[in-house]
Amino acid sequence: MYDFFCAIILGIVEGLTEFLPVSSTGHLILAGSLLGFEGDAATTFKIVIQLGAVLAVLLLYWKRYMSILKDLLAFKFSQKNKLNAIHMIVAMIPALIVYLIFKDVIKTYLFGPGTVLIGLIVGGILMIVAARAKRKVTAENTDNITYKQAFGIGLFQCLALWPGFSRSGSTISGGLLLGTSQKAAADFTFMISVPVMLGATVLDMYESRDLLTSDTLLLFLVGFVAAFIVAMIAVVTFLNLIKRLKLEWFALYRFVLAAVFFLFMM
């Protein structure tokens, strides 16, 4: 029964943090440490339930995804003033390659409270630097993003493989440094989150199939549903928030969270 309580709590945490540049994975690891919910099955659980929150993005952007899919099937890849599948593919490739090469190292050595605190701090510094860089904006919205910018954002997404950095925090920071508006970077981040997280979840579940017993599957389902419901409630508010609120405020929250947990761990 306690495990199901943990699953619900972590699902809520995931749903509330997935869309903010504060690292949902980092929050899940820290919360899991506080709850004593750790181990191989817990690590897989923390990856799988993120899909519940990401599906909220799929529902929000479904018309955009259908348009991109339609163009892909029709082999329409014109870059001019139109976000297409090529943008998304080149943005996903860097993190996919790095994850496939280092996935065992990541899961073995980086899924711990100490490494999360490092990610929170360094990622917060990156966000402050990006927010204050004052680069010339060449892409006001996602349709203005070039292939080069998409690939560059994809390189920044590699940082998110370190829990605590945050996928949205890393990619939005990368977008700002590469000349996109914060709104364009945020929208693009959420667009690529669905295929990225779907691929990562399916791969991780396949590799952890020995852990998928009737008990763990029910646990995963509880966390998945909790994350999805909370995310659906929070998604619109948080998407608007992240497009308007300066990154420095999120960085400040990350520093405070890291300091509190550092004192707790001493």
Rank of each mutant, 00 (worst) to 15 (best):
I121K: 05
D215W: 09
I145W: 12
E14T: 07
K103F: 08
A31I: 10
T189K: 08
A74D: 14
F75A: 10
I49C: 03
T17M: 05
F255I: 00
G124D: 11
M266S: 14
K183F: 07
G119C: 05
E207H: 14
I242G: 06
L203W: 00
F77R: 01
A139R: 00
R244Q: 15
T216D: 06
I47E: 00
G175Y: 01
Y109G: 01
C158D: 03
W162Q: 04
T180G: 02
G123R: 05
L217F: 13
A234T: 11
G179F: 01
T115Y: 11
Q157F: 04
L16D: 01
P94C: 03
L218V: 11
A31T: 15
F250A: 06
L120A: 02
L263R: 10
F228T: 04
R167E: 07
R209K: 14
F228A: 05
G199F: 06
L110P: 04
D210G: 12
S24R: 05
S78C: 09
T142G: 04
S170M: 10
S208H: 15
I233T: 14
F224K: 00
T237H: 14
T146W: 08
M232V: 03
S166W: 04
N141F: 13
A130F: 03
L218Q: 12
A227V: 06
T115N: 14
L161V: 01
M232F: 07
L245H: 05
L219F: 08
A226F: 08
T237R: 15
G119S: 06
D210S: 15
L257H: 02
F228I: 01
E248V: 11
V90T: 03
I8S: 04
P163D: 10
F220W: 11
R167T: 03
I128E: 00
S193I: 04
M92P: 02
T43C: 06
L252W: 05
G15T: 02
V48K: 03
G124S: 12
V22Q: 07
F75V: 05
A234M: 14
A200S: 09
G26Q: 08
L83K: 05
Y61N: 02
E140T: 12
A91M: 06
V13H: 11
A85W: 08
S78T: 13
M66W: 15
T108M: 08
L10W: 00
A131W: 00
F4N: 07
I192M: 12
Q149R: 03
L35Q: 11
I242D: 06
V235K: 10
L203V: 01
F151M: 03
F4W: 12
R64V: 05
N240K: 15
F238L: 15
F77E: 01
I118V: 15
S208W: 09
A91R: 02
F220N: 06
T115W: 12
L30A: 10
A259C: 04
Y253V: 09
D143W: 12
V236G: 11
V57M: 12
L252T: 09
I101V: 13
A251R: 03
A186Y: 12
A41F: 12
D71V: 03
P163G: 09
A53D: 09
V13M: 11
L252K: 09
V225E: 09
T138W: 02
E38T: 15
A131Y: 03
L60Y: 15
P195A: 00
F238P: 00
L217C: 13
